[in-house]
Structure formats: structure tokens, C-alpha cells
Amino acid sequence: MPVIEILGLEKTYATGLFRKQRKHALHAFTLEVYEGEVFGFLGPNGAGKTTTIKLLMGLVFPSAGSARILGLSIGDPRVHAYLGFLPEQPYFYDHLTARELLEYYAQLSGMEAKGRARRICEVLQRVGLDGSAETALRKFSKGMLQRVGLAQAILHNPRVLFLDEPMSGLDPLGRRELRLLIEELKAEGKTVFFSTHLLADAEALCDRVAVLHAGRLRGVGAVCDLIGDAGRVELVWRGRNPVAMRPLLLETHISGELVRGVVPEAAQEEAMKILRCASLPLVSLTPVRTSLEEYYLRQTQSEAPPQEVRA
């Protein structure tokens, strides 16, 4: 059963002096996210990722289409009890301490008074803020605010998490911790929907991704399908680059006495024979895989005019 169902969701804004012109922030699209999935929502800045999340959170209203979360319409206030939301560059009441803020959110989420304090300690520890629980939020750095944001998102043990650019503002260590946290949440059976423009994170974490560009959904798929075989092999050997090898090579790179060459999969046997004949020692042989980056670039640049003429 899909946890998030987006059906033809569309958002246009009226712009211009007399609000006559209409700007499409998001063209109608349909998407499903299943229970227990970590779903990456990819796209450059301004692609419509945040707009989508705000539509799902009920902060802005769709121009057309609808969406359901856990089978409830996004207009239904009950749905919010099961959601956790981390906005992009979160900002909180800066006169409160981290603990006071979480206490406030816990009350708003309808959590029982009993066990609230314990849960807040637990969550603060989980995001690595147990040392700063009594510090006023105005003294927090950007990365710490991001952690507070995560803490409030997971506080009420929601079934679905929406994280808007959760990695931004975090240092490399913080990113690693967040990756671990998302993996833990997945292990607990939660559905995580996060937007990012950092592909390495998506590749490492996501079960499936969607690519959004200029308000249009460009592709959806499982990460393992998207980064499949490219039909090429990479060979690394020691010594020189034999003349017979050259017509086969798609790419060559020489560093010191190591030669790295990429050949089509079909030419793999012939290339090995050439190396054997020339008595050049083979160091490694690996099939080349497309990265998520290549897929992403294909999706986001397909409409753009060619940037450079291929020689």
C-alpha cells in the first residue's frame, strides 16, 4: 500500500502587476512512495522540491490534483499526527531552549504528559544535542539548528518523515550521523521522503529516487536500476600503452607506470589478448557502472541546448 500518493498535483502562482500571468511552479505529476522506503527527491535548486513538500504539508494549496498520505487526504488534520517534517533551513523560537522547544512541540503533537520528558532526552541524545539541551536556541549554529529540526521531526515517533534538504548546514561528520539516523529510521519501518541536491547521499541511502527539473517530474526509479551496467569495462595494467590497443580504447589515462583504459564490453577478450601478447601485467578488470550523477544529468539537461560541440 502506498504511504504517499500524489495524483496530478499541480501548483501555479499568479504573478505580474495585475496577477494576470501564471507561473507554473509545479506541473501536474503523479508519484507513489511505499511503506518503509527511503525516497530521494532530487533536482537542482528551484526545481519544485520544496513546493511539493509544502503542498504535502498543507502550507500551500494545490492548484489542481490531490495527494494522500497514509490513505488520508492532505487536507485532513488527522494526517499530521503521523508526520514528521524538517523544513529547509529550519528556524525556531529563539527565546526557548532546545528542551523547551521540544516540550512545546510534544504538547502540540498531543503526546501524553507521562514519558514526554524521557522521550525528549532520548531524541536530543539521538541527534547529538544532549549537551546543549538547556541552551537558548539563539546561541545555536546552523548545524545545531538542523539537528534541532531533526529532533522535532522524529519526536512524536511519526510513521512518515519529510526532510527538506536535511544535509545542508551539516559538516561531514554530521552528514555521516544523519545517514546513520536515516538508516536506523528505515530499519524501524518508517518511510522517509527527503529532498536533496547531493547525489552521493541519495545514492547511498535511497531505495528509489525521483528527479525533478523546472517543475516537471523527469524520472522515477529504483536506484539499483538507474545505476545499472554501462556495457563498458575498465582495465588497469602496468607498463606502456600498446599500439594495437589504441583503436579499442574509449578512454585512456596514464599515471606513472599505470595505464587505465576503458573498452566496450564486447572488446574485453581482445584487449586481454593484446596485453598477454605484449606481456603487460593486468592489475584490475572492473565493469563500469553508470552513476546516479549520470542519470541525473541526463534527466536535468535533456531539454537544455548542447553546451559544447563534441569533437
Binding site: 504539508m57 498543507g58 502550507l59 488534520p77 488527522r78 499530521h80 499526527a81 508526520l83 514528521g84 517534517f85 523544513p87 529550519p90 528556524y91 525556531f92 523560537y93 512541540y105 502540540l108 503533537s109 498531543g110 529540526g149 522535532q152 512524536h156 519529510f162
Partner: peptide
């Protein structure tokens, strides 16, 4: 303006 409202309204608050 400061968007503190986002995290409030994403909770069961009408």
C-alpha cells in the same frame, strides 16, 4: 516571516 510556523502547522494543529 521566520517560518517558525511551518513546524507548528505540520503538527495536528488547525
Amino acid at each position: 516571516q521566520k517560518r517558525t510556523l511551518y513546524t507548528v502547522l505540520s503538527r495536528p494543529v488547525e
